[in-house]
Every structure is written in C-alpha cells, then in structure tokens.
C-alpha cells in the first residue's frame, strides 16, 4: 500500500517534470517534418539524434565528453581551492581584503572571454589558457558566496563560544564553518555551473577536442545538426554533473563537524 503510494508519487513527479520537454520535442519534430522550418537552420530532433548516434558510434562524442569533463573538473578544483582559501584569508584579515579589493573588483567585472587574447599571450594555446578561462569564470561565485557565508556567522554564537573559553581555531571549526556551510555549498554549486558554462569559450582557444571544440568545428563544417548535438551534450552532461555534484559533495554535515567534541 505504502510502496504503491510512493511509486505513484514518483511517477507523478516524473510526469510533471518531463511533460514540457516532451511536448517541445514533439512539436519541434512535427514542425520540422511539415517543412515549416529550414532544416539547415533548425534540424529536427530526429536528425540531431541520428547525428549524435553517428558521432557516438565513431567514438567522437565520448572523446569530446571525456576531455570536456576532465577539463571542467580540473579548472573547478583549482578555482574552488583558490576561492575558498582567499575567502578564508580575507575573512580572517580584513586589511588584506581592503588592500586587494580594487584589483579583485576590476577582475570580477571583466568577462573571462575578454581575457582570451592576453591569456593566449601569457599561457600559450595549450591546456593552461583553457583552464584559466574556466577558473576566471567560476572563481567569483565561489569566492563571493564563501565570503558572505563566513561573514554572516551569528555573532551571538561567537559570544557564547567565547564564554565557553573556546580558542579562535575552535570557534572557527565549531561555529564559523558549520554556520557558513550552506552558503559555501551553494557557492560551490554555482561555481561549478559557471565553470561548465565557460567551457565553449575555453575550448575556442585552439582546442583539438572537447564539446566546445565539437560545436566550433561543426560550425566550420556547416553541420548544424552536430552543433545541436554539442549543445544538448553540454546541457545533459551539465544537468547530470549537477545532480552528481549534489550527491557527492559534502552534504550539510554540520552536526558531524561536532564529532570533535565527543
């Protein structure tokens, strides 16, 4: 009885989220088959699917996917480490934050793509310049969320911690970090999204593989169907990685952080 209720709820939820995409794809297919759109400008879903199958069978799609995912993961790891360290430093030493504030703001408002020519000059056309684009794109969401989260610790809890004679390190571990945890996780998730979105820009720099390269290459070959394969692969992989990210990354395990007191 209970199981059937749960199954029903899950089916209902699945139906709710999948209805609109299915309707769009069906309408798109009908419009395409009726010849109402130019198949070069907007290939039908079935044509895109066939192009995807062809790329998959040749092993190209997997290769591009693997390269892009590893590129994003590497860039994101560098970005997250830098952003969290700097946010912690700026939280602990506000003077350093004030000294660095103008250059940081200047870098923040410049779109990463505007930096491409300079990055090629500095880092060449290898992997480093592509990673730099991903780092630039994902650094600030993580940094700003972390700084806000750290600064929003309830001062009343810190006062309480002082009356318990906890040292500054203990206050940070038991109060500041657990209190900032939801903000830190949101920042990491946002940063991961930005890293993934910067992929095409990063792979515009003399890349030989990757989903961004697949799109650019397909454009040069006038294969709109393959461009859409690249776009859908980015969207689907982005959604999948976000779901994995939510499951794999440290959960809001603040009570676990207090295990140190047991």
């Amino acid at each position: 009885m209970i199981i059937s209720f749960v199954v029903k709820q899950k089916l209902r939820s699945l139906l709710l989220v999948s209805t609109l995409p299915i309707v769009i794809v069906v309408l798109w297919e009908i419009v395409g088959r009726l010849g109402l759109t130019n198949s070069y400008l907007l290939p039908s879903p079935s044509a895109i699917w066939l192009a995807a199958v062809e790329l998959w069978e040749r092993g190209h799609l997997q290769r591009h996917l693997l390269v892009s995912v590893s590129r994003v993961l590497t860039g994101f790891s560098v970005s997250a480490s830098l952003a969290l360290s700097l946010a912690a430093l700026h939280h602990g030493l506000p003077v350093v934050r004030r000294i660095m504030s103008v250059p940081m703001e200047a870098i923040r408002v410049v779109p990463p793509l505007a930096m491409v020519p300079v990055l090629i000059l500095w880092l060449g056309i290898g992997e480093a310049s592509k990673l730099a684009i991903i780092v630039l794109a994902s650094f600030f969401p993580i940094y700003l969320s972390a700084r806000t989260a750290l600064a929003s610790t309830d001062t009343r809890l810190l006062e309480m911690a002082k009356t318990l004679r906890l040292s500054r390190i203990e206050q940070t571990w038991f109060i500041v970090i657990p209190s900032a945890m939801p903000g830190l996780l949101t920042g990491l998730r946002l940063g991961f999204g930005y890293a993934w979105r910067a992929l095409v820009g990063a792979e515009m720099i003399a890349a030989a593989a990757g989903l961004g390269y697949l799109i650019i290459d397909s454009e040069e070959l006038a294969r709109t169907d393959r461009i859409f394969v690249g776009i859908f692969a980015i969207a689907a992989t982005g959604l999948l990685l976000d779901a994995i990210f939510l499951r794999v990354l440290p959960k809001d395990n603040r009570s676990g952080m207090l295990k140190g007191v047991f």
Binding site: E159, M160, L164, D252, S255, L258, G260, V261
Partner: peptide
Amino acid sequence: RSGVVFQDHRLLPWATVEANLMLALHV
C-alpha cells in the same frame, strides 16, 4: 571562572542537545 546564560539560548541549531553541552566541556 564565570558561566553565562544569555537572554536567548544560543544553542548551536545544527547540533543535538548532547553536542551543545559537550561543547562546554571541550576545554
């Protein structure tokens, strides 16, 4: 040498009663 009770309880919302009290004995 003092112990303080504030107007609000100031318990850590993410910790159990036991963990909150153990924190007082951490030192």
